[in-house]
Simulated assay, not measured.
Amino acid sequence: MHTLKATAASSLSLPAENYIYTIAASAPGSFAAISSDDSLRIFDAASLDRVSVIAPKTHDAGVTSLRSYAAGESPLLVTGGREGKVKLWDVRAGNAVLEVETARHAPVLSVACNSGTNTIVAGTELLSSQAVVAFWDIRSPQAPRLQYVESHNDDITELQYHPTRSNVLLSGSTDGLVNVYDTTITDEDEALVQVINHGSVHHAGFLSERTIYALSHDEQFSVHPATDPDDPAQEPEPVHFDDVREPLGCEYVVQLCLGAQGPYIAAGNKIDKRLDLIPLVSTPTWRFDQDNLWRLPGAHGDEVVRSVYLDEQSQSVFTCGEDGFVRAWKPVDGSDDDVQNPAGSGKISRPKEKKKDRFKPY
């Protein structure tokens, strides 16, 4: 086990009794946060108290989701709200530069974006027996260019694009399904290239180009091969971890984090006031490497951690939670030089000092 220590904390100047839902990268060296006061704020990675409010009221009925929209020099962000709108924000200008709306004002619960195809996607709450995955081209946003309306029959809680194929989108829902679509196909039945039945989806996404993970609201976790209709090779069997709370010694799972060193499960324990980042490794088969977990002692006290970001640039881990704080974490001084920083691009670089021979487990 290795340890990260808290190096900074900030309430982002939020009003008392508010908490922070999600943090996401904005421009290099800065992050965005959405909070229970419905604001959109930007904070500096090096000084968490350096905060600017982009919008005190992001969405009229409450903000639900946040994603970065990569677009060259201008940092852009996408938010979704319960009034059925998706907004594209220009961080430097400090305002929304685009606004689109779902049919019948269906509340937006999840968003995704692909700057390469100028696309914003929204996943909606179930409304009038219909949950919709809606796509807009930001160059002509007057109406959705594509909608999938039959693939889910409950709230759509997750959307994610494939890491290298801009035409492939994954969705997850409380109906228990994780779907994968070829978005170049307008016919919904033909566009659906893979369906995974997992259980009420809290988070899902791509671990790699050929691997999908799913995490349910009751902490069931699984890893599945992403099928390739053009490759007849036999796919490996999925790995089902079932409820991971007992084996990981946690009360809840925040999310899966993809860092430079690979994937980590962020697992929280309110009683012990800690958060663990547990490596998920694929050799010889998918398993949790608990001997090399990173512990964040104290975490957010006895409050739930809501979002974790591994920042390679600053080699720091950022967390936010229901205590209303963002916290920054770095490895404890004196950590083993051979240990991989979960937020770093390589091994932790520390001055070498003479020391006695000691046992190393690897």
Rank of each mutant, 00 (worst) to 15 (best):
L12I: 07
L126T: 06
K270P: 04
E101N: 11
P144A: 14
S110I: 02
N179H: 13
E83H: 00
Y148K: 11
V239F: 03
K330H: 11
F325P: 06
E188P: 01
E312C: 09
A106T: 02
D154V: 04
T117Q: 01
E303P: 01
V304M: 13
D291R: 15
Y309I: 01
K85S: 08
I138K: 14
A32V: 07
T319S: 13
G72E: 12
A32E: 09
G205M: 00
A112H: 01
P144I: 08
D243L: 07
L14W: 02
A25P: 05
R358Q: 15
A328Q: 13
D154N: 15
I185A: 01
A8M: 11
F318E: 02
D189N: 04
P15A: 03
F206H: 01
L310P: 00
L88C: 05
S39R: 02
I348E: 02
T283E: 15
L4C: 00
P229R: 10
L126H: 03
G334A: 07
K355A: 11
L146Q: 15
A299K: 14
R139W: 07
S314D: 04
S39L: 03
V100P: 08
G324W: 10
A204Y: 03
V168Q: 02
V133N: 04
F325Q: 14
D276F: 10
N341S: 12
S65A: 11
D137M: 10
P28E: 04
L48C: 05
Y161K: 04
E251L: 06
E303H: 14
W136V: 08
A32N: 09
S335E: 12
D337Q: 13
P331T: 09
F241D: 03
R306Y: 08
G172F: 02
Q313L: 08
F43Q: 00
K354I: 09
L215N: 09
L4M: 07
A93G: 15
L207P: 01
Y161G: 03
V332S: 07
P107F: 07
V195M: 10
L127K: 13
R104K: 14
S35W: 01
G80L: 10
E312W: 07
A103C: 12
V168K: 02
